[in-house]
């Protein structure tokens, strides 16, 4: 079985799917990503599907599942590079890709993650890690 490589750029994981994935390969990618998110403490996952000729219901479900898993693990998923013909087909197929953020390309996807990260941190941006003192008071 082929495997899709997962690259790390800072605290973002980048996956560029370059092969016609079998269902098993898609499931393996899902598991690999979950492990890598925790391993490196990733805050974002960018999945580039520029090279995908089609997204059927199985791959569509895989993308939704990855988005849900990463959310639970405090990371945001952005799917980038969807071809127009793929988008048209997905909608007609009846797949809505709920909960998935999309961007036109990898660069915009990474910016989207950075921006939403800043938003999340909000006025606490100075606080990178919980202070030992805070932990003590909340205990």
């Amino acid at each position: 079985m082929e495997r899709v490589p997962v690259l790390k750029i800072g605290d973002i994981l980048l996956v560029s799917i370059q092969i016609d994935m079998s269902d098993q390969t898609a499931l393996a990618l899902q598991e690999d990503l979950a492990e890598r998110i925790v391993e490196i403490g990733a805050h974002g996952v960018v999945i580039d599907i520029t090279a995908l000729d089609i997204v059927d219901s199985f791959v569509g479900r895989m993308l939704s599942t990855i988005a849900s898993i990463s959310k639970v693990l405090d990371a945001e998923t952005v799917v980038v590079g969807m071809r127009p013909a793929v988008a048209i087909t997905l909608v007609e197929l009846g797949l809505s890709l709920n909960g998935i953020r999309t961007a036109l390309n990898v660069e915009r996807g990474m910016k989207l993650i950075a921006a939403s990260r800043e938003n999340d941190l909000g006025h606490d941006e100075e606080v990178k890690d919980p202070e030992p003192g805070q932990a003590a008071t909340s205990a």
Partner: peptide, 17 residues
């Protein structure tokens, strides 16, 4: 056409599965 190719291949993928 490219869109029709994409639709047909997607349908074939669903049905083959």
């Amino acid at each position: 056409s490219l869109v029709d190719q994409t639709k047909l291949v997607t349908a074939a993928s669903e049905l083959a599965r």
